[in-house]
């Protein structure tokens, strides 16, 4: 303990914060410690677990790389990537145009629809035609009129709610964990989140009256799925990770991992 105190004091005082990371096959992977089961979570043993953790391990083995998970808050992930604190984000980050302005993405490695869940007293949500007339469907805004719906900040779900649920109170949370807690506490009526995370949560909290209300139809806002976030000029890593995703898909390793967590095709079409 004392060693690390002295070390950090000396390190800071001398401004020698930088240690060059030249070793070649080391990849620092940013994942936020906010529990996001069954994709990523940090258990009481301080071990990472979940679908993405297993998949990451398989990909790194495929790339013959030494991957180290760095825990960074969700909203700090992109700044950390561009600030070179990490080399890759592997945290269910949806590939969106907005994010593509600042970072690059690998190919998708899973795609699951969004879902609305709600409290015992909240009615089911229906589907209507998208008013833009392009033939798409959306969750019926009329059903949510006057209700409070929770979303996580800076997610595709927050964008979706902001665009379509103008008559509802959209409450923005730091983390999905927090809106889930408030849903159980009854402070919000609904939450809009990823369907897989939603199912897990509904299962654990069914006794408290939490239930699924609607699988939200696909929408351009939701993008094409989750990919690994990469720095814009890092084509080397991008090529490697894309090749690795292809390889684990082809070898059946992907499906073996997915089977541990899901009963359906998590990769999408």
């Amino acid at each position: 303990m004392f060693k690390s105190i002295i070390k950090s004091a000396v390190v800071v005082a001398s401004l020698a914060l930088a240690t060059s990371a030249i070793a070649k096959d080391k990849i620092r992977v940013g994942i936020s410690p906010e529990a996001y089961p069954p994709f990523t979570s940090l258990n009481a043993k301080n071990q990472w677990e979940g679908f993405e953790i297993d998949l990451l391990a398989a990909l790194c083995k495929q790339m013959d790389a030494d991957c180290k998970i760095v825990s960074i808050a969700w909203d700090g992930l992109i700044p950390a990537l561009n600030g070179k604190k990490i080399d890759m984000i592997f945290n269910s980050m949806s590939i969106t145009d907005e994010r593509k302005k600042v970072i690059d993405f690998s190919d998708k490695y899973y795609n699951s629809p969004a879902e609305i869940i709600g409290t015992k007293d909240a009615p089911n949500v229906t589907v209507v035609d998208n008013p833009d007339g392009k033939g798409g469907k959306i969750a019926n805004p009329a059903d949510l009129k006057g209700k409070t719906i929770g979303v996580q900040t800076a997610t595709i779900h927050a964008d979706y709610a902001a665009k379509y649920f103008k008559d509802a109170t959209v409450k923005v949370y730091d983390t999905a964990d927090n809106h889930n807690a408030d849903l159980v506490a009854g402070r919000i009526d609904y939450a809009l989140l990823d369907s897989v995370a939603a199912d897990d949560f509904v299962k654990a909290n069914a006794a408290k009256g939490i239930g699924a209300k609607l699988i939200v139809p696909a929408d351009p806002i939701f993008g094409v799925g989750a990919g690994a976030g990469l720095r814009k000029n890092d084509t080397k890593l991008k090529d490697k990770i894309n090749a690795a995703i292809k390889a684990v898909r082809a070898s059946g390793e992907y499906d073996a991992i997915a089977k541990k967590y899901f009963t359906f095709n998590i990769y999408g079409d």
């Binding site: 159980v184 506490a185 402070r187 408290k208 009256g209």
Partner: peptide, 25 residues
Amino acid sequence: YYGLGEFFPGTWVQKSFLWPYLRDG
């Protein structure tokens, strides 16, 4: 915020006139 939130579900509090306030952070 979170500690108190744990105690409200299913109690009279959620039916009371205070609830609209107690929903709000």
